[in-house]
């Protein structure tokens, strides 16, 4: 055995660093199959890519679409008989590339219906988002240099603060590693943290199921 290799090498490793300052972070680029596992056991896997629209799926269904600009709400979703779609204003895109201090305000048109034979109901929401300074953060998936993007949802009627979402976006990963939702109406805060992520070829259902079970502390289940 040669256990001294690592220490011995450390003593002679070159010292000059070429670390560059963090450049602005570009929109995430995904590949089909890429998957992200979070601390509550949820799995978000890229099922399709159509321009800037990413189709996501979980291990147990629950498909939805969202723009690569993930600070905007899901652009379409289906659940049971119901479905919804959201159309953000063009201004939402101005948050990218991420630079500390940048902020944006945008509106989102929300349309929902309880079933395909029911009429669409429409309302509008107001969002503001601001990029914080980049900083290091560590999750069980590793250490990451992240930008925290804080977004707030306001009622268009009385400008009351309804919800706050904070995203820790890791440019090296191309996804967020932490998301905190504060729902002021329900007085509830939820945080999910990335526990692992797999590139498409490695992201089989079996591996994702195992990682999801580990993340949530549940017994592994066959998908």
């Amino acid at each position: 055995m040669i256990p001294v290799w690592v220490g011995a090498v450390a003593a002679v490793a070159a010292a000059a660093s070429s670390e560059a300052p963090r450049p602005p972070a570009e929109l995430p680029a995904y590949a089909i199959g890429d998957a992200f596992v979070f601390s509550d056991g949820r799995v978000e896997q890229v099922a399709g890519i159509d321009g800037d629209t990413i189709s996501w799926k979980g291990l147990q269904g629950g498909a939805y679409q969202r723009n690569r600009n993930f600070v905007t709400p899901p652009s379409s979703w289906r659940m049971d008989q119901g479905e919804g779609r959201r159309i953000p204003s063009q201004r939402a895109a101005a948050i990218w590339p991420l630079v500390a201090g940048k902020s944006v305000r945008f509106t989102v048109i929300n349309e929902t219906r309880l079933a395909s034979d029911r009429p669409w109901e429409r309302n509008m929401s107001l969002w503001t988002c601001k990029v914080g300074p980049h900083h290091d953060t560590t999750t069980s998936a590793g250490s990451f240099d992240v930008f925290t993007i804080g977004c707030e949802l306001y009622s268009p009627v009385n400008m009351r603060l309804l919800e706050r979402v904070a995203w820790d976006y890791a440019p090296d990963l191309g996804h967020y590693v932490r998301r905190t939702n504060v729902d002021y109406l329900a007085a509830r805060t939820t945080t999910i943290v990335l526990t692992s992520a797999l590139h498409g070829h490695a992201a089989t259902r079996e591996r994702l199921a195992a990682l999801a079970a580990q993340a949530s502390g549940a017994a592994p289940q066959r998908p």
């Binding site: 040669i2 290799w5 011995a8 090498v9 002679v12 490793a13 010292a15 000059a16 670390e19």
Partner: peptide
């Protein structure tokens, strides 16, 4: 071990300083 040390000594450090 010596070969590994020699190669490590020629490594161009990238990212944060050190390993």
């Amino acid at each position: 071990r010596k070969a590994l040390q020699a190669v490590a000594a020629e490594a161009v450090d990238l990212g944060v300083p050190g390993r």
